[in-house]
Design a protein around this nucleic acid. Structure first.
Lengths: 191, 191
DNA sequence: TGATATATTGAACATCGTTTGATTTCAAGG
DNA sequence: CCTTGAAATCAAACGATGTTCAATATATCA
């Protein structure tokens, strides 16, 4: 209940509009009851974000990523762009949420993004030999981090007018493909 | 005065430990006086971050980036890594600071990062022909965004154990260099 | 039914950014 | 030197936030 209410509020007013009292009112309870289920509001938000990430990954899983890596990457990036444009507030919550200093994220969060990165790993598999697992994982994480950076800058209003989110993502994908297609030095981290 | 006090507090306790009352106490004034100088605390933080970015850029300017682009990029990334490791709290403030929804960043902020991106543009200049200004700028922004993403994930505790910040940054630079060195398709955006 | 555990409440607390009216400071003019 | 008006500064308050906790209601079960 609380998570559904939180999702509804985030979709309407964004993460900054999400408040414990707001969630409580939405589900017809008072704030105290929330703390019987969640330790604090950050844990609740993290749970919501995990569900969002899982949802994106499940959409990725339905994609057909059997052909070559370049096309797979393009498909993935298009799916990502599409989702973030359809549910901007929801994805912004994933991007924006920060824990108070000293807190460690739940294992479930790392599992969730780990699976999402796993999708990328699968997509770029044909760029690597069978024994290059480490560098394949590193590249997938690099792509994820770069995508995250572009999106974070965009949602934070930190991109100037000329640089658009789409052109940056496109460039990221094409640059990576270019690096991998004619590529002799595959990876240092595996040797 | 207020900015120096804010910088000191950020260095000691991080951005989340920065408070209007804390700044006021540090400079021996009361909160009200701060609002005679700044419209709000976000503007103050943005000012502080602008100074930080300008400082990094001035360090970059002292670098010798005359040789080839690959080495220049490596030098720049090492400088970046060095600075963020020496002043983690200060750089985290740049990464973490978000404005309330609806607010637009000051022009001075865009100027500041624009100049920093300009350093990157200069570093990668030898990868481009004279008329490829647009794609050169796009690439510089992409590198900045990717670097931002890696750092943001790291400082937010969103990287799993195996992926280290350094290895990701290294990989980013080397991947980009690889894409540009043996590269027939320079850019679509210029043609 | 009565006792025990669980759920829920409502009010309070601490902290935050921000506002505002009173008060002090201070330099310029008579 | 005194007055006056503007600017700087203060102290207190406001509203919103996340969180806590004793009191109350509800449910469970012997």
């Amino acid at each position: 209940m609380a998570l559904d209410a939180a999702r509804k509020i985030v979709l309407e007013k964004g993460l900054s509009g999400l408040t414990t009292r707001g969630i409580a009112k939405e589900i017809g309870y008072t704030v105290g009851s929330l703390y019987q289920v969640f330790d604090n509001v950050d844990q609740l938000i993290e749970q919501l974000n995990i569900e969002t990430i899982d949802h994106v990954r499940s959409m990725c899983d339905q994609l057909d990523l059997d052909d070559d890596a370049a096309d797979s990457l393009r498909k993935l990036s298009h799916l990502y762009i599409h989702f973030t444009q359809e549910n901007p507030q929801l994805w912004d919550a994933v991007i924006d949420h920060k824990l108070p200093t000293g807190y460690r994220r739940q294992d479930a969060y790392f599992d969730s993004v780990g699976k999402l990165v796993g999708v990328v790993e699968k997509a770029i598999a044909s760029f690597f030999k069978a024994d290059e697992l480490a560098s394949r994982n590193l590249d997938a994480n690099l792509l994820w981090a770069s995508l995250y950076g572009i999106t974070a800058l965009a949602t934070a209003g930190r991109l100037a007018r000329h640089e658009t989110t789409l052109s940056l993502i496109d460039r990221l994908i094409e640059t990576y493909i270019a690096a991998k297609t004619h590529d002799e030095l595959t990876s240092k981290s595996d040797r």
